[in-house]
Design a protein around this nucleic acid. Sequence first.
DNA 1: CTCCCGATAT
DNA 2: ATATCAGGAG
Length: 210
Amino acid sequence: MDEKKRTSRIIARLKRAYPDAKCSLNHTNPFELLIATILSAQCTDGRVNLVTADLFRKYRRCEDYVNAAPSELEQDIRSTGFYRNKAKAIQGACQMILERYAGRVPETMDELLALPGVARKTANVVLGNAYGIASGVVVDTHVSRLAQRLQLTEHEQPEKIERDLMKLVPQRDWINFPHLLIAHGRTVCKARTPLCADCVIEQYCPSSMK
DNA sequence: CTCCCGATAT
DNA sequence: ATATCAGGAG
């Protein structure tokens, strides 16, 4: 079986197992998703959602972040970790969005990549989940781990993994595919102890311990 | 490559 | 005690 066929079988199985897989970061607009995604670095989505529940009530627009005292914003996002970096990134991004785009989150890859604290992973999350634009494939820690275990790539750098996945996965699935891998990665194909006995794609996995 | 960093699971 | 979590910048 060639790699594309194996990939399509994997996708079909995962869609059946996780029919409701979607973006797990709570948000009601592109701006909120951008902030939530910046906060999600090396932090669980559950923790991010806990923080943004209060954060999005207190900070509604770019001006609210830009005008806040850095130390106060840092405390408001502290429990997500890396809070100094994240606060600085958020304030820098908001200032740029205000100056260049009149407060609207841009809808192109290049414009998003120019924002501080935003690289391909965050840009792909915002474009895909807030704007419905299939700009690429989100590669986070779960997608990276599963793509390697499934041997959908032989690389470790996120950018190279994304390039391999964009070749293997049909573009209509670029947005949903990471949701499927993340759902599977969180519940079954875990980082420390993969539960291969419970895996619905075990027959397609070269790394299976079954 | 290193650094940033708190919360939770194992 | 240590690994891991929807990463990005220098």
